[in-house]
């Protein structure tokens, strides 16, 4: 086995999701290399040289601009073939989920999406992945010689540097797919936020529809005080109280912070699927029968508009 980790860059900067994919590679026990693509790849490659990779490869090419699958997939596939890599891994972020199936199809490889764990058994890799919104787990194997995998960020902790200095090598960009000529990258609208990313935050303050138009007004001070990321239920995003990128759930972000506040969130299956891996869950809801209380470690039956300001005051006192 020889694993290739696909690094994730956004606007030229390395994303922390990459370190979850490195964690997977270390768990397989096989040697691994890392590939960074696009403008900024060279700098990202130097950042990744201390993680114990056999090589860190960089296709630092302005032609691979923007998060366009058709521009990334040909080079990933070409590097995999040239280097004899048979396991390809990326984080199951929106980038990984977009690009990696396309790479799998190019290589005739099987694809295991959003896996939660991996085990090496008798020379084979056995994967476990959540299905039915995390209400069941499937154990699976890929039956192909080359295997493509995306890993769930909340289940694979970010790898720490292990020292050493992997050789960094430049690799050439593969010729673009004809399909690439029919995609134009118009732009990325990144949500401007000083807060940590939902996938990396130690504390998350999430709100539901009950917050109405006062979503930010009520939650922002609490999130700032705790250096937390802000999340939201699907209902809050759908109603327009919170922007879509804050959605936590089966089809939004899947998170597992140390501390998760569910404020005014009833606890639909869809939402629970995205946060029930959190270490400690606090629920504040005025409906004592809300399903969220069935997964919360600490439940407070209260009017959130009273309880949240009180919580802020109490936390400030305790600091």
């Amino acid at each position: 086995m020889n694993t290739l980790v696909i690094a994730e860059l956004s606007e030229g900067k390395l994303r922390k999701s990459t370190h979850s994919a490195i964690n997977f590679a270390r768990q397989t026990g096989a040697p691994f290399s890392i590939l960074a693509l696009g403008p900024g790849a060279k700098a990202a490659a130097s950042e990744l040289a201390s993680f114990g990779a056999a090589k860190v490869l960089a296709a630092d090419d302005a032609a691979i601009a923007g998060q366009v699958a058709e521009l990334h997939a040909p080079t990933i596939a070409a590097v995999a073939k040239a280097g004899g890599f048979d396991i390809l891994v990326a984080c199951a972020s929106s980038f990984g989920k977009d690009v990696m199936p396309r790479v799998a199809a190019k290589l005739g490889a099987g694809y295991a999406a959003d896996i939660s764990s991996v085990k090496a058994e008798g020379g084979k890799l056995v994967y476990r992945r959540p299905v039915y919104a995390g209400n069941a787990y499937g154990t699976c194997e890929l039956l192909t010689a080359v295997q493509v995998v995306t890993v769930r960020q909340s289940e694979f902790a970010a790898a720490e540097p292990s020292g050493g200095a992997s050789p960094v090598e430049a690799v050439a960009t593969a010729p673009a797919d004809p399909a690439a000529a029919r995609v134009e990258f118009v732009g990325l609208e990144a949500a401007k936020s000083e807060r940590p990313d939902l996938g990396e935050a130690k504390v998350i303050v999430s709100g539901g529809r009950a917050l109405k138009e006062r979503f930010a007004e009520v939650l922002d001070p609490l999130a700032t005080l705790l250096s937390a990321a802000v999340g939201a239920s699907r209902a809050a995003c759908d109603a327009g109280y919170a922007p879509p990128e804050l959605q936590v759930g089966q089809t939004g972000r899947v998170v597992a912070p140390q501390l998760y506040f569910a404020i005014g969130i009833s606890g639909a299956i869809q939402h629970l699927a995205g946060m029930k891996g959190s270490k400690t869950i606090v629920a504040i809801n005025k409906d004592a029968d809300a399903p969220i209380f069935q997964v919360a470690d600490y439940g407070l039956v209260a009017d959130l508009f009273v309880a949240v300001p009180e919580l802020i005051a109490e936390l400030k006192k305790a600091q």
Binding site: A136, Y137, C140, L143, T144, V282, A296, E310
Partner: peptide, 28 residues
């Protein structure tokens, strides 16, 4: 031919419901 084979399924351990707290001070 299929490229993925599931060998089994299992249910995750249910998360235990915790405790109800009376006041914000007690929660903190």
């Amino acid at each position: 031919a299929l490229k993925i084979k599931y060998t089994g399924f299992d249910l995750p351990p249910a998360r235990k419901a915790g405790v109800k707290i009376k006041t914000v001070a007690e929660l903190v």
